[in-house]
Simulated assay, not measured.
Amino acid sequence: MAYHSGYGAHGSKHRTRAAPDPPPLFDDTSGGYSSQSGAYPAPGADVAFSVNHLLGDPMANMAMAYGSSIASQGKDMMHKELHRFVSVNKLKYFFAVDTAYVAKKLGLLVFPYTHQNWEVQYSRDVPLPPRQDLNAPDLYIPTMAFITYVLLAGMALGLQQRFSPEVLGLCASTALVWVVMEVLALFLGLYLATVHNDLSTFHLLAYSGYKYVGMILSVLTGLLFGSDGYYVALAWTSSALMYFIVRSLRTAALGPETMGGPAPRQRVQLYLTLGAAAFQPLIIYWLTFHLVR
């Protein structure tokens, strides 16, 4: 019996031609990039090309020059507006202090009753800096006292297991708001009383910020000796600050040039000074009583 030509005898294997190998799915690129024209560029070549193209483009150079000009004009305008509202030279005057002045001024704030001369000293119609005149107001002590008060408030709240960043931020912001409100009230009172003086915003900030010294002493005494010590320190520092504010503001607001004015105006100016001084113990108590328990 004949078999089909493609098969052998019964039981033999089917013989076929071997199929070619399938093409690889990915090209082998382990040998590096090809040098042919269709190969990928070297790393960084496109960035260098973009930078060179940008620098060589006259429109891009013009845009960069125009942007630099606008930035320079904006910077000059910002400095001009800053100097319009805040004089850097005047601000430097209130920070011209030294160690001896700070020690004497702190003693004056705590015990001002023996101080005799409260007049601010001048040299060629220019007030002497604080380091040369104890009566000159400064912003160094109020600034450092404010920072110390915030840190002391955090320590007091921590000792009472009531510390949290929100409560500490509330203490700091409340103290700042009270000072701003006090300065605005003083400005309004001086304006309504038509007081002609040389008191600036920095002067009023300095006089309003001296209360932080009394606040620190009151809180420290309260933490060491309890509520009784707190109220004793509060009474002493409040009375000392009131005396200091009355003598300082009265000398500044009621200078020799205003002493010859009408009697009603002088009384209004005196009442304004007394009101500003009488308001200090209330602020000190409001900002410190919750720190001592």
Rank of each mutant, 00 (worst) to 15 (best):
Y3T: 14
G6E: 13
H10F: 09
S12A: 14
R15M: 09
R17M: 12
A18P: 13
A19D: 12
L25I: 10
L25E: 09
D27H: 09
D28Q: 12
G31Q: 12
G32F: 02
G32E: 06
Y33S: 11
Y33N: 14
Q36V: 06
A39I: 00
A39M: 02
Y40E: 07
Y40Q: 08
P41W: 05
P41S: 10
A42Q: 08
A42N: 10
G44D: 06
A48L: 12
A48R: 11
L54N: 04
L55Y: 09
D57I: 01
P58L: 06
M59T: 08
A60Y: 03
A71K: 02
S72F: 00
D76C: 00
D76V: 00
R84S: 10
V88I: 15
N89D: 15
L91W: 08
Y93H: 15
F94M: 04
D98V: 06
T99P: 00
T99L: 09
A103W: 06
K104M: 07
G107I: 02
L109V: 04
T114R: 08
T114F: 08
Q116H: 07
Q121V: 09
Y122S: 09
Y122D: 00
S123D: 12
V126M: 07
L128H: 01
P129N: 06
P130H: 02
L134D: 03
P137S: 04
L139N: 07
I141Q: 03
V150H: 04
V150M: 05
A153F: 03
G154A: 14
M155R: 08
L157T: 05
G158M: 15
L159R: 14
F163A: 15
E166V: 11
G169Y: 02
G169I: 04
A172N: 05
T174N: 12
T174L: 15
A175K: 00
L184V: 13
A185M: 10
A193H: 01
T194K: 13
V195M: 06
H196T: 04
H196C: 05
L199I: 10
T201G: 15
F202Y: 15
H203D: 15
A206F: 00
Y207W: 15
Y207E: 11
Y207F: 15
V213C: 09
I216F: 12
S218H: 01
T221E: 06
G222Q: 06
L223E: 11
G226W: 10
Y230L: 03
V232F: 14
V232C: 05
W236P: 04
M242N: 02
Y243N: 02
F244K: 03
S248N: 09
G255V: 01
P256E: 10
P262K: 06
R265T: 02
L270G: 02
L272S: 01
T273E: 01
A276P: 02
A277F: 00
Y285Q: 08
H290I: 05
R293A: 11
R293G: 14
